[in-house]
């Protein structure tokens, strides 16, 4: 099962490689990874998506906790959260399909960020499922290139 794991880290050189080294060394997979500074400049937030059964996810969480520079590990599947990913997709847009592409992008509330006579580059933001849906729809029209940020996720605030 796919899990989004959020890791707060000390913002120091080499810390990222401790995390990625842990994954490669223990044979866990990383499907996506996003990392940047948080409000506290001494802390970075790393969000990664991975897959595995409960025992593997438990090991991943525990092994991450064991790293001295790791401050907090949250399996976002276990909390209410907002998940976002951004993709820039370059899609073929020639005479017969230019309007169709724009319609699709509009439906998904995407934006055209680059235009050429034969293609559009469009920006799509949303949960990974939405990105997938856009890709599935655009694929028959002809996708030339995709760049994705990887998932980021934030726990929802408590309502009461």
């Amino acid at each position: 099962m796919r899990h989004v794991i959020s890791v707060l880290l000390q913002n120091k050189p080499g810390v990222l490689s401790r995390v990625t080294g842990l994954f490669s060394g223990r044979g866990f997979n990383i499907e996506s990874l996003a990392v940047a500074q948080t409000l506290d400049p001494e802390v970075s937030c790393l969000t990664l998506t991975t897959t595995g059964d409960d025992m593997i996810i438990e090991q991943i969480t525990k092994q991450l906790h064991k790293l001295i520079d790791v401050i907090k590990v949250t399996d976002m599947n276990e909390v209410e959260s907002v998940e976002r990913e951004m993709a820039i997709i370059r899609v073929k847009a020639e005479a017969g399909t230019r309007a169709e592409v724009l319609r699709v992008i509009d439906i998904f509330r995407g934006k055209v960020v680059d235009v050429s006579p034969k293609s559009y580059a469009v920006e799509i933001t949303g949960p990974a499922s939405k990105i997938k849906a856009v890709i599935d729809i655009l694929r028959p029209i002809g996708i030339q290139e995709i760049v994705r940020t990887g998932v980021i996720s934030m726990a929802r605030a408590k309502k009461n």
Binding site: G14, S17, R18, G21, L22, G25, I68
Partner: peptide
């Protein structure tokens, strides 16, 4: 050496 020993130390420092 910090890179080399990262997976076989409890922690390491430069």
């Amino acid at each position: 050496i910090v890179g080399i020993t990262r997976p076989c130390t409890k922690h390491n420092y430069l």
